[in-house]
Structures are given as C-alpha cells and as structure tokens.
C-alpha cells in the first residue's frame, strides 16, 4: 500500500487510470452486450454446426481462415474478412446468390449459380452464426408481402436505394469497376438479407434505420416492378439511353427503309 501511496502522484498515474477505466468499460460492455437476433443459432442443431464447420473448412477457410477469423491478403493470394458476428443472413445471401465461394478476385465478387444446395447453405449459416451473434435469416413471416404498403416501399426505395440501384432498380455503376446490381431477379429473402448485412459496397440498413415492415414494403415494391410495363416492352428499364438507341435503330431505320422504297427510281 505504501508503494502505491508513494506513486499516486506520479505523472503517469492518470494515464494508467484511464487505461484501466477503458479496459473495465470494455469488459462490462462485452458481458452486457445484447445478444441480438440469435434465434436461428439456437434453433440450429449441433450436428448442423459440425457439418457446416466441415464444409467451411473445405471451401471457405483458404480465404477466411480455418476458424473464420479472417486472413490478410498476401501477395497475389486470397484474403477475406473475419466472419465472426456476420450472422446467418450474410452466409445465406453470399452463398445463396453464388457470390461465395468467390470465383476470382476483382473489383467486386460476382453473383453466379449457387454452388451449394439449400441444406448445405443452412449448415454453413448455422456454423457461422455459432461463432458470434449476428443477423439471422428472415422468417417467412418477415417476407410475407400480402399486407405490404407498395407505395411506401416505392418512396423508401427512391430515398434510400435509387442513388445506386437506379429509380427502377435496374442497377447502376459505382466507382472503379464496382456496380450496384439490378434487382429484377433477386429473391425476397436475398433482398432482405442484403439490406440487413450490407454486402460488398452496400451500406447496412439495420432494423432501426429501415424497420422490418419497411423492408417488406420495399420488397413488395420491387416485386410489382417485375410485373412488366403497361406501356409495352421495357427496353431494359434503363431510361432514355435505350429509348434513344431504339428510336434510331427501329424508328429511323424503318423510315429510311421506307424513304429508299419511296424514292426508288421508277424510271
């Protein structure tokens, strides 16, 4: 005690105290942190998790590390982020849309036909969810759009999504070869999970930002966009550029054809 009393006026004492206080706060927070959205994890059986771990170590560990702790990209080699705490939703989205396992490195990982079946995806999701709490796969109830407000979904889409995906959801370009994909073929569950987990360049829209009901409204709006256009062919829904292209190709093309026909010499 005497030694402590002698040193409490030492000029580094405040720094040491501050460090101790920070450590304590961190420890308390780690214990008290709300374990959110881990319902799926609870439901998953031990055998699913074990099977998922095997799949993970065979297919994902090269980049994400044997325990999903992530790995720095070494020279020309693969690296991937830590998957602890990304939740089952992220796995279901990334593996379900075929983005993972990644075919190659690039500006952006591309979607492709899924490499695993639904059961394997569920096992992988269960394993990753067991590593740390994260957003879970949306339930059928969350995806039920029967009572959705399509108009509100449209307004939310224009406010939150249109600057990257375009006002019609036809996709758009981002910097350096990245892009926001077209949303016309994405399944409702994948749309929901993308909002929840923010894959690649996309920001996270958590439940405080866009509520589950609003996410459902956005999905309902995107589904009505797929019903075709009352005006005829959609021309890719990319706006005036394709309209101008077809005005020249079909309109001026046909009319010049007609001109040649009419102007053809009769003599």
């Amino acid at each position: 005690m005497k030694a402590l009393a002698a040193r409490r006026h030492h000029r580094f004492a405040p720094v040491v105290l501050l460090l101790l206080a920070l450590l304590l706060t961190g420890a308390v927070y780690a214990i008290a942190q709300p374990a959110s959205a881990d319902a799926a994890q609870a439901a998953a059986s031990e055998s699913d998790i074990a099977a998922g771990q095997k799949l993970f170590q065979a297919n994902c560990a090269t980049c994400h590390g044997p325990n999903a702790e992530g790995r720095e990209a070494v020279e020309a080699g693969a690296g991937g982020p830590s998957l602890i705490g990304v939740g089952a939703a992220a796995v279901d989205f990334q593996v379900g849309t075929g983005r993972m396992p990644a075919q190659m490195n690039g500006a952006q990982i591309m979607a492709k036909p899924a490499q695993f079946d639904d059961e394997q995806i569920a096992q992988l999701a269960a394993y990753v969810a067991s590593l740390g709490a994260g957003p879970s796969i949306p339930t059928d109830e969350q995806l039920d759009t029967t009572n959705a407000d399509v108009a509100l979904g449209g307004a939310l889409f224009r406010t939150n999504c249109a600057m990257c995906h375009g006002v019609t959801g036809a996709g758009g370009a981002l910097s350096q070869g990245k892009w926001a994909p077209a949303l016309d073929e994405t399944s409702p569950a994948h749309l929901y999970e993308a909002m929840l987990t923010g894959p690649q360049s996309m920001p996270v829209f958590n439940d405080a930002n866009i509520t589950p009901d609003e996410k459902r409204d956005i999905i309902a709006y995107l589904e009505t966009q797929r019903e075709g256009s009352p005006g005829g062919l959609t021309l890719g829904s990319v706006g005036p550029v394709s309209e101008g292209l077809w005005a020249w190709v079909i309109g001026i093309g046909l009319l010049i054809g007609a001109s040649v026909w009419i102007g053809a010499k009769s003599s």
Partner: peptide, 17 residues
Amino acid sequence: YGPFDPSIVGAGAQPDW
C-alpha cells in the same frame, strides 16, 4: 420514376438522346 423530390437522385439519370 415517381414524383420529383429534390432529395432523390437516381443512378443512371440521363436525358433524351
């Protein structure tokens, strides 16, 4: 496209050709 609102800017906004 929806009604105009100055806060909304869509990706790929282009004019006629």
